[in-house]
Design a protein around this nucleic acid. Sequence first.
DNA 1: TTGAAAGCGCTAACAG
DNA 2: CTGTTAGCGCTTTCAA
Lengths: 335, 335
Amino acid sequence: LQKNITIHELAKIASLSPSTISRALRDNPMIPESTRLSVKEIAVKYGYRPNSIASSLRSGRSMITGVIVPRINRNFFSNLIGGMEEVLFEAGYTLLIFQSHDTHNNEVAGVRTMLNMRVDAVFMSLAAGTLDSSYLNELSEKKIPVFMFDRVDDSLPFSSVKMNDYEAAYLCTRHIIQHGYRKIVHFSGPGHIMVYRERKRGYLDALAESGISKYKPLIINNILTREKGFTAMHELLKSPEKADAVFSASDFSALGALLAARQSGYSIPDDIGIAGFANEPFTGFLQPGMTSIDQNPVEMGKTLARLFLQGDLKEVHRRVIPSKLIIRDSTLKPA
Amino acid sequence: LQKNITIHELAKIASLSPSTISRALRDNPMIPESTRLSVKEIAVKYGYRPNSIASSLRSGRSMITGVIVPRINRNFFSNLIGGMEEVLFEAGYTLLIFQSHDTHNNEVAGVRTMLNMRVDAVFMSLAAGTLDSSYLNELSEKKIPVFMFDRVDDSLPFSSVKMNDYEAAYLCTRHIIQHGYRKIVHFSGPGHIMVYRERKRGYLDALAESGISKYKPLIINNILTREKGFTAMHELLKSPEKADAVFSASDFSALGALLAARQSGYSIPDDIGIAGFANEPFTGFLQPGMTSIDQNPVEMGKTLARLFLQGDLKEVHRRVIPSKLIIRDSTLKPA
DNA sequence: TTGAAAGCGCTAACAG
DNA sequence: CTGTTAGCGCTTTCAA
């Protein structure tokens, strides 16, 4: 058992005081170069490992940040966290992760842990189960900056990084219309989540603008999974006035729709056009490839981290990361 | 600015000593039920948040664990971490994440941070760039338990959770042979990484056992990405004695091979059979679906966490998680 | 340029 | 059952 050596012991060895050791190790300019070097040499020689815990307690900065997401195994979140970690690590911060599994209780527990750990920042995307996020105000009261992404609540005074869901949905729907589809159905998510409301709005505006008003918009809520997309599509195909395209707020339900349509003998994109959202890796490997929207999650994560690091605590920043419509064969109806 | 209230202040309010507050909050049985309840009531009323940092410093247990992986945005790792987080959180532990990006330097920096943070456990999968992992011994000297997965180094005295790469590769290769393929090429990874050596061994044993010895095994190393698989497959198709199947140690290079074969006008599975490794989500969505091996990452993550929590520090455990051959159309040659 | 002293908030002997 | 005391290892005044 190798006990960790402390600055007190290093001080004895170097015949200096603990404060000098502390200063030397952190490159305090008051300490002359020569002592700094010799102190560091001794530190290396004796395998000194600074105790971050003690340092945190004394300084009041933990150098720990935390991120709360619904689940980490989604392509969007894991890429975002990856980008975030990269930038934070570079700056000497560590990153704690929590999964809310989309329930409010887990999210609250996660925030409590963040408070107890005295993290220096919280990054989060709200759980679907969170209807009231005002409890997050405790974080601001304790001066812990909060950065939101994806599922944000704009009524709270927190900085956020988002993509323009409205615009992306608008452009995607317009693209679908331009390729000759007319009866376009929209799969949406729970109505209280902002990103889904925004995507819905983009879809509606594109339709309204197109002048194809004789086909009423058709929105089906809460269709985010492969299974629900599959079932919903089968329902649609049975109805008298069939849809000829689906614009889904989720790649997974779009996939379900694609599989259902294919199972019923429809050809994509000839009979039915399909587009999803998020550009999950599989969308590029499907046959035909599925049109989707790349949210640029790595860049979002990096931006979140930088927003925190630049440390302008007073202002609320709302950054918008450009997204990209990825057009693939699933919406390219032959003329 | 709401300063955090401390047990000292709670003590004043409750007319008790700080130690009693501390004990009451942690349900020490010495404290009678009645005081425990009233202390907790006051704590809630005043929004007390226990300072984990201070508690860690004093008790010597940080309740923080850390995980180091090459990158978090791979399906295998994000699922594994997800499973790990779930079990750890349940037990009151937090989880720090680091990405090595497969370089040794990043990995060393990650371990250093773990040491400085005085984590209670480290979970890790070695970076491809790590040739010598003996530096990890500092963790054991400091009595920090290490749990390895996927890319493990069995020469170190650390517990590990793996799948049986040898057996999975053997069974997959045998399956390919049984379906009538004869000239089976194997795409492997860097030779110094155990999992790839094991997969290679399984492939070779299945071939040796099959009696189709007139076709020499053909192994191509360092083919793990889509791009490399694509290029390698094109090379193979140009050579005089063409391969009729690929068993790849990576789904991504298998995908590259599939795309290359298709581009050259070959049909899968009729002309060429293809199987990958890891059961990435996209393998199920390809046309034809790609045969692969499900490593059960969520279960691996949970097992790792439980291994730590059960806390049998003395012994080195080597757990093997069952994997599953997922047979899809890409290896089902018509008779 | 360096050191002494105090204390971050908590836990754990030890004593009562 | 409860309180007193003494730190965990570090940073940071303040004084020299």
